[in-house]
Computed example of a mutant assay.
Amino acid sequence: MASHHLLLLVLLAMACCHAIASDPSLLQDVCVADKTSPAHVNGFTCKDAKDVAAEDFHFSGLHKAGNTSSSKQGSAVTAVNVAQIPGLNTMGISMVRIDYAPSGMNPPHTHPRATEILTVLEGSLFVGFVTSNPNNTLISKVLHKGDVFVFPKGLVHFQFNNGKGSAVALAGLSSQNPGVITVANTVFGSKPSIADHILAKSFQVDKATVDLMQAQF
């Protein structure tokens, strides 16, 4: 009986740990990232409190449109995460501005460490995400100015400008460093490349098609 109680306690502990897993939590008022520290931790070490300044919590630039012409997909992402605001360290949040040219898109990608909530500031977007195996269900919707949509953590999602003019969106993410895995870049643009016979079998196409795709990246 004692062994059963012990097993139950272990299972409960594992469940609790899984439930609260997220960015490192605050144990003090602020923990401004010290990017010069040689210490390797899951996040950033804190710089000395006496060196903390207002600029550690400030970023200017989201009023400026991103250069969509420099992207093959016709979109530009302006990120505001711990790399731009050191004061976000341990806060568990970040944000981005996304600009879309007409017919531009933010291609299928995932954020391995964050849920995303997006609101359209200008224009119209067709957005969606795909649920995990085995169903792979597409959940999609057309958004207009003022509309909000949520992309669950880790799921592949996209945004496409289906309007006649440019579009702008602002998104919040539940991590100081959400990460981005763009599906096409990851699969076809890895260095070194994934062997074409592996990708050919995975996608059920011939190797020539895979070689053509890899050449784009």
Rank of each mutant, 00 (worst) to 15 (best):
residue 56 D to A: 11
residue 123 G to H: 00
residue 49 A to E: 10
residue 178 P to K: 00
residue 170 L to Q: 10
residue 38 P to E: 13
residue 37 S to W: 05
residue 111 H to E: 00
residue 193 S to H: 13
residue 130 V to T: 05
residue 157 H to F: 13
residue 93 I to H: 03
residue 78 T to A: 13
residue 211 D to E: 10
residue 85 I to S: 02
residue 22 S to K: 15
residue 92 G to L: 08
residue 32 V to S: 06
residue 99 D to R: 00
residue 74 G to C: 08
residue 169 A to W: 05
residue 31 C to F: 03
residue 95 M to K: 07
residue 62 L to C: 02
residue 199 L to S: 03
residue 11 L to C: 08
residue 184 A to P: 03
residue 11 L to Y: 01
residue 149 F to A: 04
residue 187 V to Q: 00
residue 51 D to I: 03
residue 183 V to R: 03
residue 74 G to S: 10
residue 215 A to I: 02
residue 16 C to Q: 08
residue 107 P to L: 12
residue 199 L to M: 05
residue 95 M to R: 05
residue 197 H to Y: 13
residue 30 V to C: 06
residue 20 I to D: 12
residue 82 V to T: 12
residue 60 S to R: 09
residue 48 D to L: 11
residue 119 T to E: 03
residue 71 S to N: 13
residue 28 Q to E: 06
residue 207 K to M: 11
residue 116 E to W: 01
residue 178 P to D: 00
residue 2 A to M: 08
residue 162 N to M: 03
residue 191 K to I: 03
residue 36 T to F: 15
residue 53 A to W: 04
residue 120 V to N: 07
residue 94 S to I: 07
residue 51 D to G: 10
residue 69 S to W: 08
residue 90 T to V: 14
residue 145 K to C: 09
residue 188 F to G: 00
residue 192 P to Q: 07
residue 12 L to M: 02
residue 77 V to R: 12
residue 47 K to Q: 12
residue 64 K to D: 08
residue 152 P to D: 05
residue 118 L to M: 11
residue 32 V to A: 06
residue 83 A to G: 09
residue 45 T to K: 05
residue 207 K to T: 15
residue 77 V to K: 06
residue 10 V to A: 05
residue 43 G to Q: 03
residue 74 G to L: 01
residue 152 P to I: 10
residue 12 L to R: 00
residue 70 S to P: 00
residue 120 V to P: 12
residue 61 G to S: 02
residue 45 T to V: 11
residue 166 S to Q: 11
residue 40 H to P: 13
residue 72 K to H: 13
residue 182 T to G: 02
residue 58 H to C: 15
residue 171 A to W: 04
residue 19 A to C: 12
residue 25 S to T: 12
residue 125 L to V: 02
residue 174 S to W: 09
residue 160 F to K: 15
residue 31 C to Q: 04
residue 120 V to F: 09
residue 37 S to Y: 13
residue 98 I to M: 12
residue 128 G to S: 10
residue 199 L to F: 01
residue 65 A to N: 15
residue 76 A to E: 11
residue 32 V to I: 14
residue 177 N to G: 09
residue 149 F to M: 06
residue 180 V to L: 04
residue 168 V to N: 08
residue 170 L to C: 01
residue 170 L to D: 01
residue 172 G to D: 01
residue 178 P to G: 00
residue 12 L to K: 07
residue 26 L to R: 14
residue 170 L to E: 01
residue 93 I to A: 09
residue 135 N to C: 02
residue 184 A to S: 14
residue 166 S to E: 15
residue 173 L to M: 15
residue 27 L to I: 14
residue 63 H to A: 14
residue 45 T to G: 08
residue 45 T to N: 12
residue 24 P to H: 08
residue 217 F to G: 02
residue 174 S to M: 06
residue 112 P to V: 07
residue 72 K to P: 15
residue 169 A to F: 02
residue 19 A to T: 05
residue 24 P to E: 01
residue 1 M to T: 05
residue 153 K to C: 10
residue 155 L to C: 02
residue 81 N to K: 00
residue 21 A to E: 06
residue 176 Q to M: 04
residue 93 I to C: 08
residue 39 A to W: 01
residue 4 H to A: 15
residue 120 V to R: 05
residue 111 H to G: 00
residue 171 A to I: 03
